[in-house]
Design a protein around this nucleic acid. Sequence first.
DNA 1: AACGGTCTCAACCGCGGATGG
DNA 2: CCCATCCGCGGTTGAGACCGT
Length: 329
Amino acid sequence: MGRAPCCDKTKVKRGPWSPEEDSKLRGYIEKYGNGGNWISFPLKAGLRRCGKSCRLRWLNYLRPNIKHGDFSEEEDMIIFSLFAAIGSRWSIIAAHLPGRTDNDIKNYWNTKLRKKLMSSSSSSHSSSAMTSPFLNPNSQDVKRPSTTISPSSYNPYFENPTKALISNIDGFEADNHQIFPFVNPNYPQDISLSESSNNNISGTSGFSLNHNMCGHYSNHNNFSSDVSGNRSEIIMKQEEIMMLMMIDNHIDQRTKGYDGDFTQGYYSNYINGHGDLKQMISGTGTNSNINMGGSGSESASSSSSISNLAENKSSGSLLQHKCLPYFYS
DNA sequence: AACGGTCTCAACCGCGGATGG
DNA sequence: CCCATCCGCGGTTGAGACCGT
């Protein structure tokens, strides 16, 4: 048995709102508010509409200070970086873009930004069609943690908006100091703004990777060896990093517990010349160095496909800490 | 001008979580 | 605790706009 409908669909009007209905809705709310109850609102306001429809119309269209029209490049960048950090939590993203609604941002992402990112990422690889797991319709079962995250607790953008620019994606200009807020919001304690040079991997152009805040990364042999010397081989394009962060975030959702080894494995493969994101996603090719979590004797090499990794929810070694490295240039 | 394909975005749907009795 | 109700969210839909032929 399904859930009871919120109203009798046969007795309410549906579809686009007329100017008269808008005026009624706006007028009533400006005078009385919604009375704390949207379900009974239509009756009081004299509207033949479902309460949920009234709420949606108000929040997404009629509410004061709603911004309509094109998104600015700065807004694009904010959306990019927040999506990379927290995924499709549109309401949280919207909270950081004054005047924009979650619905607006969701539509904008689905129709414009996603394509922008895809074209940017695929152009950086020899493979023509880049596939990302977070675009997979089968990923609808992903459930988000319900915790409310204070934006300033995980995203340095809010301390200095100019730091959050994402460069080199479809012509975005790089600032001298950019901070990529690609961090796992569930683990703000892993974040540090330290610029300690000991554990930085410096690219000769573009960015450096600070993983100092994440012991898991710095303890890994492959990774450490690069930290101590062979730096030139780990340079990755920023859009590739961004894609990785998104994948990392996606797997984290799927497994509800994942310690960041996928990204690390990808780095290892990248260093070894096997780093092809498309292969990592499909599980083909030579990239076999994916550790399913844990450390020492608990480690077990496994299939490298993202889907396998994502579905491996039974691994006892999943999850000590989840963390994403911090990127800045 | 007519047509068909694609894109956009307002609106809908159903679910999970919060809340209160 | 349990249950009913409501809210808010994210995914999806479909009408109309737009565009290319």
